[in-house]
Design a protein around this nucleic acid. Structure first.
Lengths: 236, 236
DNA sequence: ATAATCAAAAATCTCGAGAAAAGTTGTTGA
DNA sequence: TCAACAACTTTTCTCGAGATTTTTGATTAT
């Protein structure tokens, strides 16, 4: 049932890294998203090439790839640094996500076939299971939940034929994931997220486009409100 | 009057290239957009490094930067090639542009101040002048028109506070520009584009958001219809 | 004490050569 | 004649050292 979903992103993602540069890229991306490298931190090639066990030029390429995702900024002749964060930026990311994701969902609902429906309920089921394990608080369950949450949102819009919207949505998801992890967001669990997901699934399967996009919109925007109520030194 | 506009893109663009890699990147981008390197064409590093007079590693970096703009695709261990084109892709690009650009215009109309209005009329004036010269058919006037057309569309949404929307819109504009130049589109001039631009300006200054976005939407989508009526070997 | 100037140090950027992989051609055997 | 295998050529990928640029720290003059 898993392989119903086929990854057709612009930057093909799913498969194994075929080159050292790409491997370093993925490790670096993971470390940045998880906050190992702090926002605004300078990324010195000479220092990192040992840590990631690649040559200088190779690491350089990995950094360039991260510029694509806007997780790293390159400044002229002054090297690289981790993209800074701000509340304004997160608000921007969230609103843009709403714009893209609602449009994508609308098209998905319009065009999705039986297989899409099956994928949606399957992904929702996986996510629900992950939520059950989450209350126990065992280690690694949070990681699992993040993955399945991402998969759920991805499957929802998987029937949207626009590769560009999915591409941009993908970038924004990485961005907001960074904010989510960086913030004290590691709090217990998001609110009654389960009910919201359930409502989205119901509306989607009922082909109620207006309702589904409305709920999804609220769902995404709620994370913005949550971050707004965080301590001010969040920007770090 | 010109410096009213401040470039605040994610990937800062306006200034001079500060590095060899970036210089090569811009030349390559220009050549790809103008069709010097055809869609699907293989981009061999060994051959291009002489042509652009940089080292192999440097050219490699330039190619990576182009992957960001989705003008070049990198395949695992099999080098780079110019991103292929298709009618479906162009349709996708155009529709996504409509989604982003109308949203941006709506916010611009809502938030734009006097300076924004001044920039809009100024850019429109520059564009109109370029159209006048265009009928003479002197060389280089087409280039000038493209630049000012781009500037006009950029200024229109310049009051949109979302850096992300402007960033994505920027990428898509490059993409559609490639299609426009690649196609036989070099035809006389787009239709009565002037009247459409005029109508957009009027609606924007009247703060008639619904009207302005409707016209802009039609305006962008019309280019899609034009391409649809091109010979089939357009995909080349 | 503050500001400007200049030299040392660190980091980035660039390059060409060597290692690994992919693609091509020619040969052998059924 | 066709398919499979092997050696060769081409291309990509990787690495470390040298050249430029930026940054830091100390010195001097106002």
């Amino acid at each position: 049932m898993n392989d119903l979903v086929t990854s057709t992103d612009l930057a093909s993602e799913a498969d194994e890294p075929k080159t050292l540069a790409e491997a370093a890229y993925r490790q670096l991306r993971r470390d940045i998203i998880e906050g190992v490298h702090r926002p605004g931190e300078k990324l010195r090639v000479e220092h990192l090439k040992d840590q990631y066990e690649v040559g200088a030029g190779t690491l350089r390429e990995a950094l360039q790839l991260l510029v694509t995702d806007a997780l790293v900024v390159a400044q002229g002749q002054r090297g690289f640094r981790v993209a800074p964060i701000s509340l304004d930026d997160f608000a921007d990311i969230t609103r843009t996500r709403v714009l893209l994701e609602t449009s994508a969902l609308q098209q998905s609902i319009e065009l999705g076939d039986d297989t899409w429906e099956a994928n949606v309920v399957a992904a929702f089921h996986m996510l629900s299971r992950a939520e059950d394990k989450l209350v126990d608080g065992a280690k690694g369950t949070r990681e699992e939940w993040e993955l399945r949450n991402r998969a759920f949102h991805e499957v929802l819009i998987s029937a949207c034929p626009s590769r560009w919207i999915r591409h941009f949505q993908n970038i924004l998801y990485h961005q907001s994931e960074r904010y989510r992890r960086l913030s004290l967001f590691r709090q217990p669990i998001p609110r009654d997220v389960h009910a919201e997901h359930q409502a989205i699934v119901d509306a989607a399967l009922a082909r109620n486009s207006a309702e589904a996009t409305r709920i999804l919109s609220d769902h995404i925007l709620r994370t913005l409100d949550a971050v707004r109520q965080l301590p001010a030194d969040f920007i770090s």
